[in-house]
Write a protein that binds this DNA or RNA. Structure first.
Lengths: 340, 340
DNA sequence: TTTAAAAATACAATCGATTGTATTTTTAAA
DNA sequence: TTTAAAAATACAATCGATTGTATTTTTAAA
């Protein structure tokens, strides 16, 4: 940005022979400026091509009207839908949104928090990375009085709102669905147990087994970061195990990778092994057999998260709340095992 | 952000009984401050939990070390890969990245440009929306001296660098591939012709037909925004047309939607109709039959775009350039028509 | 020990907008 | 026409950091 070309309120003031404070008030549509003057100022502003310097304004008013969003990866469908929800709500309330990717990396997440604090965003929405095990990097921001709301991946920090999905129930439903379809030896693809989200999903899986008199085998719970490659690795293990007839995966990515690998090895899905995923990625309806999965209200989660955060920004006495949204089991072909 | 909690360089200065200018210089590691003083200042800074106020700094130095990225939709795989490339290069050069979605909406794009100008980002990377037909909304930013680099969707504005893919060649290859596989009546799914990108793709399609002595039928060129729904609408038209044996789609989304619809109507892909897409979305390798498509160097495009922009930011005499990256035809099952 | 040069630090203005207070102008009642 | 109240505008300080210039302190040569 070339310096010489910046038009400021002082230029407008000088051009009209008035004070810059009046210009400022006019541009903010204050009642303290007469209509005639206001019009003159507005006209001159467009004439000179004035554009408010938000940096200066933000510095003075001590707020940025900006919320920062930390997301593990924007490329995942679930997250990009959440972001759309956030943007919609934020825009309506007059807030800008800065989107940052942590790439599931703790150090990157730390740096992003620093940048957001340094840029004095009014609030932060964060879905913590899978690597994150401590929360010290959030404290400077919280100590400066900045509100944080957790979405998708809950995180129990005092005074922070969070919004998530009923992972336990979803998992229970998914596992029970496999059992009802005749599966007896169900493997679970799980994520890092440090995260309550994956813990809850595991609990749901275990409890569903228990309810139906199937005993839980710790070896059947395969933990990873649920990447495509993890799905393939797990599929290989499953073939080695030999007698597995069901897979409940904590995300679609790993489930789909596993299905493709198993199919390539001549395993019939769902006749030999039934599969249920999690997320309802677009790809899940395209793969053959189409994948039974859990649909989350992603867009709504984004809207709710943004709305909780904005309430906290605007009303510091706002009581912190935790919201849990409901999910839906989408039954497709991959789970039609051997229905009696 | 609560006001009372802000620690400034003045607090550090007061605590140490020195001047704030010295504190500022120390924090910026200037040679004008002695090692002992520097250490004292750094220690006090961490003790007080000081975090630089970037707003103030940016206002004073008249740069933000931030580049703005306008992208039609982050959820599209191609764009999220481009963004990853941008972030990597930007981070290495010490720039922050603000990601904004236009959702292919012109008005939204206008607003985003205003916000970016207002926030005085040092440069802008933009892939213009499909709705965009005029470029007046870019002028205020350009007039303020801010550099803009176009990526993916070229846009010929004086003094602006751009980086794109050889769409003509890609299209020619794709169409020729269908012809070589025995297709005689090839439909082209095209995008808005206002955009050179889709124009070039159409040209490639037309020229490939010509080269192989097939005559070009304007009715075979179906124009839309290439959404999922557009793909279905086109598929219906194709069934009506009756004698189509090949589809070359300007993106995978429409191609895949069309394949699914055609399959549901009993059309055999690729025996009855062969299909080639564009983008190499992850879904293209999962659908059955797997989709022959064009792979673009998305990550590299992001890196190159960021690097071009940063060069322009740092060296105003930098000569504007247009780069064209090469593409690759990924042959899969959907195009195996009736190879002789 | 004196003194000039170099190093370190302080002073003061500035970036562009906002805002509490003071002053001037306008309005309307007396 | 006078005058008090209201409206409009100007003045001046401020947000937090940076930076050119001035001053002080330190270093090292004479």
């Amino acid at each position: 940005m070339k310096k010489g070309e910046q038009v400021t309120i002082h230029d407008i003031a000088k051009a009209l022979g008035i004070d810059s404070s009046t210009v400022s008030r006019a541009l903010n549509n204050s009642t303290r400026v007469s209509k005639t003057t206001k019009q003159k100022i507005l006209d001159k502003a467009t004439e000179l091509g004035y554009q408010r310097n938000t940096l200066a304004s933000n510095l003075r008013t001590n707020k940025t009207n900006t919320i920062g969003v930390i997301v593990p990866r924007i490329s995942r469908n679930f997250f990009s839908s959440v972001i759309s929800g956030i943007e919609e709500t934020a825009q309506k309330a007059g807030y800008n949104v800065i989107i940052c990717q942590s790439f599931e990396d703790f150090e990157k997440e730390q740096k992003l928090m620093e940048t957001l604090l340094s840029n004095r965003v009014d609030g932060v929405l964060i879905s913590i990375s899978m690597q994150t095990e401590t929360f010290d990097h959030l404290m400077p921001y919280l100590n400066h009085g900045g509100p944080i709301v957790f979405y998708d991946r809950p995180c129990y920090i005092e005074n922070c709102s969070s919004i998530s999905v009923d992972d336990y129930k979803a998992s229970f439903m998914a596992t029970e669905h496999l059992i009802e379809n005749g599966c007896k030896n169900i493997v679970h693809f799980s994520g890092p147990q440090i995260n309550p989200l994956y813990k809850n999903r595991k609990r749901g899986y275990v409890d569903a087994l228990k309810k139906h008199g199937l005993n839980f085998n710790e070896n059947y719970c395969l933990e990873s970061k649920l990447s495509e490659n993890d799905g393939i690795v797990f599929a290989k293990e499953i073939i080695k195990m030999g007698h597995i007839d069901g897979i409940y995966s904590s995300n679609d990515t790993a489930a789909i990778a596993a299905i493709q690998y198993l199919k390539s090895k001549g395993v019939n899905i769902p006749k030999d092994i039934a599969v249920v995923g999690f997320n309802n990625d677009p790809i899940s309806s395209v793969i053959e057999p189409s994948l039974t999965t859990i649909n989350q209200p992603d867009f709504e989660m984004g809207k709710t998260a943004a709305s909780l955060l904005i309430q906290q920004i605007q009303d510091t006495s706002f009581k912190k709340t935790s919201k849990v949204l409901d999910v839906e089991l989408i039954v497709r072909q991959s789970s039609q095992h051997k229905k009696v």
